[in-house]
Amino acid sequence: MHFEASLGYTGATATVHLAGVLDEESVPQLRSLLEQAAAHQPLRRLILRLHDLESISTGGVRSLAFLQQHLEPQAEVVVDGATGSVRQAFRRGGLDSALTYLDERALFPGHLAA
């Protein structure tokens, strides 16, 4: 499956949707999208929608880590829908502790998903 990426904004939140296989050849496309997201000011939250992302290369993880390091200290990076293999790639890349994962069972504090 090929790689697809899109970017949208709602106020101070940027949402990046990634789908397919993010291999090393796709890293420049990801990097460009992340640079656009980081340029949006003020950026308080970056949401990574990864439900359709099958895998991510080491270069993709490094690109996300680089972005996270250059965000304002109060900015939050939220991961929505990462598969086990994508989460494992984040852990191997040392990025896991800098991310907030949405729990699909509890979308809002105190409320269970239907």
Rank of each mutant, 00 (worst) to 15 (best):
F108A: 02
T10G: 15
G20D: 04
L43V: 05
S85G: 09
S63E: 13
V21C: 04
Q68Y: 07
P42D: 00
H70M: 13
E25C: 05
Q74T: 11
H2Q: 06
L48I: 00
Q69G: 15
A39G: 14
A82T: 06
S6R: 06
T10V: 07
A37I: 10
Q29P: 06
E104A: 14
L7N: 02
E25D: 14
L99W: 05
T10F: 03
V16D: 04
F66R: 15
L53D: 08
G94M: 11
L22K: 04
L18G: 02
T10H: 11
P109S: 13
A98G: 13
V86D: 00
R49P: 00
G93V: 02
T83L: 05
H111P: 02
G59Y: 03
E104M: 05
A113F: 10
L30A: 08
T15E: 01
S26I: 01
P42V: 13
T100R: 15
A38C: 12
S32I: 01
A114P: 13
F3H: 09
A38M: 10
H111K: 03
G11P: 05
Q29S: 09
A5D: 01
L112R: 03
V61L: 09
H17T: 11
Y9T: 12
A114M: 03
R62I: 14
L102R: 14
Y9S: 13
S26Q: 03
R31H: 14
G94L: 13
Q74E: 14
A14C: 08
S63D: 04
E24Q: 14
G59K: 03
S6H: 04
G93Q: 10
R49I: 06
A98T: 15
A19Y: 06
L112M: 10
M1W: 01
V86W: 01
G11R: 06
E24S: 15
V27D: 10
A106R: 08
R44Y: 00
A114F: 01
G11E: 13
R62F: 11
R92K: 06
S26K: 11
F108I: 07
F3R: 01
I47E: 05
P109Y: 04
S26M: 09
E76T: 12
L50N: 02
L43I: 07
T15P: 01
V78L: 11
Q68F: 07
D80F: 01
A14D: 07
S6Q: 13
L71K: 12
V27G: 11
Q36F: 05
S55V: 05
L22H: 00
L71D: 02
L7S: 11
T13H: 00
D103H: 15
S32L: 07
V86Y: 06
A38D: 06
D80V: 10
T15S: 02
